[in-house]
């Protein structure tokens, strides 16, 4: 009841005084890699910008430069009364947990990780489903029947991408070969395009002609190497098809932008809920990108195959294995 009244009050204020349209002061904390990583963080930025454009409500943001800054930045936001405060990336989890406890009246959200607190919304994605779809496309586009995967940091989350991808590839051609490499075991693995390029080159040298990356900034090197070698790359998180038109088969889109937009919007409309939100294919949280840049690469046959897979996943007839559920990949 109080919520409704509060919501009405917000509405009244909004109508009465459009200048100070906001009773919410959203904030967003990007992960290492920065807001223009053409990938994960940038998707968040796009969502926040969309919200700003539509509602006229401004937001604060901050890009951390090192791990030590996370907590301080979150607290800085909190102290200024920012809410909701959205933290991008699983590495922020322990900091969010700490700061959210200190400021129980503020709203927090975290992407890619679950923080179990009454004032935190945890947004996680079923990346395996989107990866499965691009795996289907990769297997069909590959002439050598050898495809590659380059991950960023070797963590369960990235293995989840890899596993779904392998599942999609094997669904098309059980004999197809998938080369898998991880860039590293530390945070630096997200921002090392040279290493990413070398990994992609080594896979291409071994015969791969489609390479999918889930490696943030490192992935720019993967796509570059694939394009340089005249092979195909597959982008991730944001739609990266435009980076090398005609050389990027598709992108596995993870709609962090939608998640951020929703978080801000829900808070503004008084519809905020805490708890875990799992966004899969059904919810429009993941998908694959088709636009002018890659439409020449996607044949009608590929399109119908991927549509079929999509339908199967949504209606439950195709189950894509979640690596993080049991830390194994059956494909």
């Amino acid at each position: 009841m109080r919520k409704t009244i509060f919501g009405l009050a917000v509405l009244a204020v909004t109508i009465a005084a459009p200048v100070r349209a906001a009773d919410i002061q959203p904030a967003i904390l990007y992960d290492l890699g920065g807001k223009f990583d053409k990938s994960f963080n940038e998707a968040a930025y796009v969502g926040a910008e969309k919200f700003k454009k539509e509602t006229g409500v401004d937001y604060r943001d901050f890009e951390i430069q090192n791990d030590a800054q996370r907590e301080q930045a979150l607290r800085n936001f909190a102290r200024r009364g920012n809410s909701p405060i959205v933290a991008i990336g699983f590495t922020q989890a322990s900091s969010v947990e700490k700061v959210a406890k200190e400021f129980p009246d503020l709203k927090f959200a975290i992407v890619d990780m679950v923080v179990d607190l009454p004032n935190v919304r945890s947004i996680v994605f079923k990346e395996q489903e989107g990866s499965y779809l691009v795996g289907v496309l990769a297997a069909m586009a590959s002439k050598s029947k050898k495809v590659g995967f380059v991950g960023g940091m070797d963590i369960p989350l990235i293995r989840k991408f890899a596993c779904g991808y392998v599942g999609g590839v094997k669904a098309v051609d059980a004999k197809a070969e998938v080369f898998q490499n991880m860039t590293g075991t530390t945070g630096a693995a997200w921002n090392d395009p040279v290493k990413g390029g070398e990994l992609a080159k080594s896979q291409i040298d071994r015969g791969a002609d489609v390479v999918y990356h889930a490696a943030g900034g490192t992935g720019l090197g993967v796509l570059q190497a694939a394009a340089d070698a005249g092979k195909l790359g597959i982008g991730v998180d944001s739609n990266q098809n435009h980076l090398h038109p005609g050389k990027v088969l598709t992108s596995m889109t993870k709609r962090v932008d939608v998640a951020i937009y929703d978080a801000f919007k829900d808070a503004k409309d008084g519809k905020w809920t805490a708890g875990v939100r799992v966004l899969g294919l059904k919810e429009g949280g993941v998908g694959w990108a088709l636009d002018d840049h890659n439409k020449g690469l996607i044949t009608a046959e590929m399109k119908s195959a991927v549509d079929k897979a999509e339908k199967g996943i949504v209606d439950g007839s195709i189950k894509v294995h979640d690596y993080m559920a049991d830390k194994t990949c059956p494909y």
Binding site: F90, T91, A93, M113, I155, P156, L157, T185, T186, G187, K327
Partner: peptide, 17 residues
């Protein structure tokens, strides 16, 4: 340090070393 935190001292299943 990377080796120790990834292979020896780190927590299994954790996303950060």
């Amino acid at each position: 340090m990377v080796w120790l935190l990834v292979e020896v001292l780190g927590q299994p299943g954790s996303m950060s070393p």
